[in-house]
Design a protein around this nucleic acid. Sequence first.
DNA 1: TGTTGCATGTAATCAGTTACATGATTTT
DNA 2: AAAATCATGTAACTGATTACATGCAACA
Lengths: 203, 203
Amino acid sequence: MSAENSILAILSFWPSSGYDIKAEFEHKAAGLYWGMSYGSIYPKLKKLEEEGLIFPMEKEEEGRKKKLYELTSNGWGEFEKWLQATPAYPVVKDELLMKMSTWHEDMDSSVLISHLQARKATTEDILKFVKEWPTNGNSYISNYGMLSIRYAEKRLKTELEWIEESIEALIKDKLPTGQDPYGNTDKMMLRRREALKTLKENN
Amino acid sequence: MSAENSILAILSFWPSSGYDIKAEFEHKAAGLYWGMSYGSIYPKLKKLEEEGLIFPMEKEEEGRKKKLYELTSNGWGEFEKWLQATPAYPVVKDELLMKMSTWHEDMDSSVLISHLQARKATTEDILKFVKEWPTNGNSYISNYGMLSIRYAEKRLKTELEWIEESIEALIKDKLPTGQDPYGNTDKMMLRRREALKTLKENN
DNA sequence: TGTTGCATGTAATCAGTTACATGATTTT
DNA sequence: AAAATCATGTAACTGATTACATGCAACA
């Protein structure tokens, strides 16, 4: 349900086409907190039109023709109802963290370091964008929007700090000490070697 | 594809049942970076078994019977291949941030404050858990796992700081200044009032 | 004139959740 | 004896992506 609402939210800024909405999710404000592909956007625009929440206003001037959608009064109503509803706590799916949590001693830690370096590069790019964007002279950002940009900035900086610390710890082989009350690391390594031995025997 | 890999990853710790895996995603390490419901887990276990990556080992002792799954040698291979593949950059879907970015002046900001307070409460709970967990005396956390716990801790603390700053700014009505080179805020308010006027006329 | 970017859209597919159904064991 | 928790599973549904198909406009 919330994917449709985020389309309404984008249309609240100004009338937009499907293409514009995609761009907004790709390089702009909304992209930091949400994402969506054409295969979702166009069918949803159609659905929202059928529900009477938006209507198409065939474009004026300029070379290219595009189909801009604008909120109806019901659309505004729906949008503001959504704003007031308690937001769901974000569900995180972070493959790097998942991999790191299940990394083990028989794996080459330099691979994990290179995962961290890749993450660092992307995070730095996004941080650069987030810093420049509110003063680029042509993007619209409301005062409320600035609050969420501050969030992005803080969060990305913290992430970079952690990445650097972690790379450092891995290189110097000074990882923090975990907790293993039942000797699980050893058990795990035994299970693994046992399983891989079986593989050799079968080949 | 990665959902299956995260099941393999959990099984790498120790043989587990579908129920165990769910629990792991709910209250433990993995839950901070991933999530999954029974409706996904059981069919995936079946599929992984068919693919020869895991096999069931009917439970030993204890009262309840459960079906523990263990990695095969191919399962270990697949798991470690996955560990080495470059992780995708996490896709964030944060409804609170999306709402905040599109909040506007005709909406009661006390509602936004209460959204922030709800988020704060949940974040505090999770932070508390994350802090206690590595020293609870019975959970297994590898040294690599500790690195990712540090991430969670840092990130949650940063989030709390930002929430407090933001509540403060909203209460005192001292929001940071955004950027509005084409007078969009005014245009938006006009469009909105125009649309809502139409609604009144039709009722 | 060929390539890139703008622009809209659909069909096939994949991934996931919710709700339901069932039943055993443990605790109160 | 009832309630809670452990435990497994399926069917219906929702939601979203990928790949494909199409075509015009701008530009080099």
